[in-house]
Design a protein around this nucleic acid. Sequence first.
DNA 1: TCTTTATGGTGAG
DNA 2: TCACCCTAAAGAT
Length: 273
Amino acid sequence: MPEGHTLHRIARTHRRLFAGSEVAVWSPQGRFAEGASMLDGHTLIGVSAYGKHLFYRWDGAPHLHIHLGLVGKFPTYDLSTHGGSTPPATPGTRLVLANDRAVAHLAGPMSCRLIDPSEMDQIIAALGPDPLRTRRRNDVPDFIAALSRRRIPIGAALLDQAVLAGIGNVYRAELLFLAGIHPARPAADVGPDAAAQLWDLAVGELRVGVRMGRIVTVRPEDLGARRRSQLGDDERLYVYHRQGLPCRRCGTEIAMGDIGARSIWWCPRCQAA
DNA sequence: TCTTTATGGTGAG
DNA sequence: TCACCCTAAAGAT
């Protein structure tokens, strides 16, 4: 599940349900027992997401840094909409957050550790602009400049969190389709106008992802629908995992290849080389 | 009851 | 470039 939209959605949910309250924290699996005991019972001050990173700030305790990696999950149960009961934590649950309003189960994170503020600053400083954060004046120029400096394929550059924070393998393929750019094209050749367009697409698509809780890039009119919410689970994406299937716009068979050590998909006609 | 797969990232060679 | 880490669900047997 985790590209930038997932993390920003978790941050938003946890701010609403946990911030400002004393939170019970423990580690059913035991691998974060020591850290959990340092947070248990403290008041959560705030939660923020930068790219794919989550930071929890507490009153009188170190920051909690979480990165879900590829397989991490953080299902959260609002007691008011779950009849007051929640599913039990699985044996692999690394961390539980709980108060009288909600329970959250963290499983499979790549990172779950306590850090000090300077470490948080370092992590954020290493990231490129995040399309989901409040726009800073230099975000677009920074992104354009970062692309212009790289000779690697644009498909690889978009996965680099120092170029654009929060993009993963689904969004990179879908954004390049929407922009009509072949993924193997050198990043530096894309040019400032197309780069600015990629940024705008990233902002728009990631916001939709946060709102809907899943990645939906297909324009409903391409499938004769009125709203994105009407699209089925197999109708959400243009190219990701669609090798050999007809392009939703032109009917050409979607191609697949390897770029930046990950699989990527594209339409050979809509994204001509 | 296996094996495979996944929207990510690190560290060794 | 490759092995490896993390977990759970889906698919194969």
